[in-house]
Each structure stands twice: as C-alpha cells, then as structure tokens.
Nucleic acid binder design. Structure first.
Length: 220
DNA sequence: TACCTAACTGCTGTTACTTCA
DNA sequence: TCTGAAGTAACAGCAGTTAGG
C-alpha cells in the first residue's frame, strides 16, 4: 500500500493497492468489490486470493467475458443513453450481476468505439469528397482553358496589386489567403469551385456566411 | 499472431463547499 | 454580516495504453 499524489491540481491522498485503480482516489475503492449478489459462473471475478497472493508486481489481470445476454442488455441501454447517471449505473449493474465499475468501463469503451467508428466514416467521406473536388477542379480548369482559348484580343486592364496589365478573365492566386479565384472584370471575383461545392454537398458546419467572408476581397 | 475489448492510468473540466480578505 | 475570489475535494468523462482471451 502506498500514498501517492494523484492530481496535478490538488494533492490527494490515494490509497494504492494491487489490483485497485489508483487514479481516482477514495471513490474508486469499491471498484473491484465483489457485488453483493452472488457471482455468476459466466463471468470471472477477480478473487481476493489473487490480489493478496501477489503483493510483488500485482495480481495477474483476469478478464471478464460478457455473456451474450449481458452484451445485449448493455447495447440496448447504450442505444437509449450514451451515458449513465449513478442510479442507472447501479441498477444496470444489479440487473447484469456486474459491478457498477464494470458497467461504467463498458460504457466508456463503448463510447470510444462509436467515436472511432464515426471518425473512420468521416475520414472515408472526406476522402471521397476530396476526390470529387479534385475531379471538379480539373474539369473547371479545362473549361477555363477552353474559354480563354476562345477569347480573341482581351481588353487590357491594370492589376491593382502589381500595376501590370491583366487579361479580362483569368485565374489568380491571392498572395495573402492563397485562394484561387476566377476574376471577371464586370462582376468581380466569382466563387471558386471548392466554395460552391462546400455549400451544396458538404454537411459540415461551415456556413455560407463564413465562406463568403473568407472569399471577400476585404477579408483577404 | 492479430484482433477485440475489458480494465487501467493519468489527465482535465465541473461542481459544491470552505476559507479569507 | 455579506460578498466575491481563491483554494480544495470529489467526481465524471476522455484519450491513450495494457493485457487477457
């Protein structure tokens, strides 16, 4: 047994015992207590003998295998609520003949798994989106080339930045925001392909107003 | 042997409470 | 006596890791 400081913000007295979680101070002392309800043969308890016999190096970690019924109930409960309040946790643990800590850990891991799944899906989606944008960009560039080729003797204008002559319609890269814009002399800069696609196909929380402000010459 | 997942560790944020100027 | 700031403890959740099956 040892007394360890466990928090960076506060000096907590933590009783550290082999086989017991040490991170959360006294509240976790009941974590591995055998529930009052009798142990099931379906799940492996970390029995007290194991804890006591291996004072050097800690007890070998026994791993619970949840039964199908336990998993089903936990999943069902997770569908209803991704987090549990202490009462719900207690009740569920009672129902499943598990320790509250085990239910808590299961929910934590389950949340992590669903988050990982969600992230993977988003990653896939972004990859596909990137692919389609690349394709669209290529198409638009080709289109610009064609339009440029059709133009004969474009009127000359003076660039406000460089004071150099510019063609009437051209792709330009803003040196500050590094965005490519198609400049149309009569109507000013038009939205780039990426912006248009973003507002129509992407379901992220990038709002049109944000995009417009990023696009506007004043903002850049 | 790779994979899945229960269990653990360390950390952060929140809330309630206490102390003190 | 009241009040707001600062400190602290308890707790919950998360990210990352470990290790059993």
């Amino acid at each position: 047994m040892a007394v360890l400081p466990s928090s960076s913000s506060a000096l907590e007295l933590t009783i550290s015992m082999p086989g017991f979680a040490s991170s959360s101070s006294v509240r976790d002392l009941d974590i591995n207590q055998v529930p009052s309800i009798g142990a099931e043969e379906d799940w492996i308890t970390m029995n007290i003998d194991d804890e006591e016999e291996s004072s050097n190096g800690g007890p070998p970690r026994k791993k619970l295998r949840l039964t199908k019924e336990q998993s089903r109930l936990l999943e069902e409960s997770f569908r209803q609520n991704h987090t549990l309040n202490p009462k719900q946790k207690e009740a569920l643990a009672m129902q499943l003949k598990l320790r509250p800590r085990q239910v808590e850990v299961w929910f934590q891991n389950r949340r992590a798994r669903s988050k990982l799944k969600q992230t993977e899906m988003e990653c896939e989606y972004l990859k596909r989106w990137f692919g389609s944008l690349t394709e669209q960009n290529r198409r638009l560039q080709r289109e610009v080339e064609e339009l440029r080729a059709m133009k004969v003797g474009p009127p000359t204008v003076i660039s406000p930045h460089s004071c150099e002559p510019l063609p009437a319609s051209t792709l330009t890269m803003c040196p500050r925001c590094e965005r490519v814009t198609t400049t149309n002399l009569e109507k000013g800069p038009i939205k780039t392909a990426i912006t248009t696609t973003t507002t129509t196909t992407m379901s992220t929380k990038v709002t049109t107003s944000t995009l417009q402000s990023r696009q506007s010459p004043a903002a850049c």
